[in-house]
Simulated assay, not measured.
Amino acid sequence: MSVPPEAALVAALGASPAPVVLWWRDDDAGRDHPRLASLLALAERRRAPVALAVVPEWLEEACAARILGCPLATVLQHGIAHADHAVPPGKKIELGGSADHAALARDLVRGRERLAAAFGARFRPVLVPPWNRIDPDLVPGLPALGFKALSTFGRRRAAEPVMGLRQVNTHLDLVAWREGGRALSPEEALSALAERVRAYDGEPIGILSHHLVMGDAALATLDRLLTLVQDHPKARLLGMGTLLGEARW
Rank of each mutant, 00 (worst) to 15 (best):
D135V: 03
I67T: 03
I207N: 03
L150K: 02
P4I: 11
L244N: 04
G14S: 15
A220W: 07
L237N: 02
R114F: 11
P130V: 01
L68I: 08
I205E: 00
R166K: 15
E6I: 11
G79N: 10
K92W: 08
A73K: 03
E57M: 11
L172S: 00
R196G: 00
L145I: 02
A7E: 15
A144E: 15
E60W: 13
S191M: 10
A144P: 07
D201K: 02
A11N: 14
R224E: 12
D32T: 15
A102P: 04
P136M: 06
A51G: 06
R133P: 00
A103Q: 14
G154V: 04
G79H: 09
P233V: 02
T152N: 01
L127R: 04
G215L: 01
G181H: 12
V139H: 11
P19D: 01
P17M: 13
N169L: 03
L59H: 03
L52Y: 09
R156A: 14
R182H: 12
M163I: 07
D84I: 03
L225M: 11
P17N: 12
L52W: 13
R114G: 02
L72W: 12
G181S: 10
L9A: 12
A41E: 15
A121D: 13
P34V: 10
V128K: 03
P136K: 08
G14M: 13
H211E: 10
L165E: 11
P140L: 12
D84Q: 06
D100M: 09
R47S: 13
A121F: 07
M1E: 15
G206L: 00
M214T: 14
P140T: 10
I134F: 11
L237E: 00
E179A: 15
E44Y: 04
H82C: 02
E187W: 14
A103I: 10
P130W: 02
A176V: 14
P89C: 09
E246Y: 12
L59N: 05
L184F: 10
G141N: 08
A41K: 10
R236F: 05
W131H: 10
T227V: 02
Q167V: 04
A192N: 08
W58G: 03
A218N: 05
E203V: 11
K234E: 01
T221L: 04
E187F: 12
A159G: 11
L108G: 02
K148Q: 15
G206W: 00
V126S: 03
K234C: 03
L145K: 06
E94F: 13
R236P: 04
G215S: 06
L145R: 05
R248Q: 13
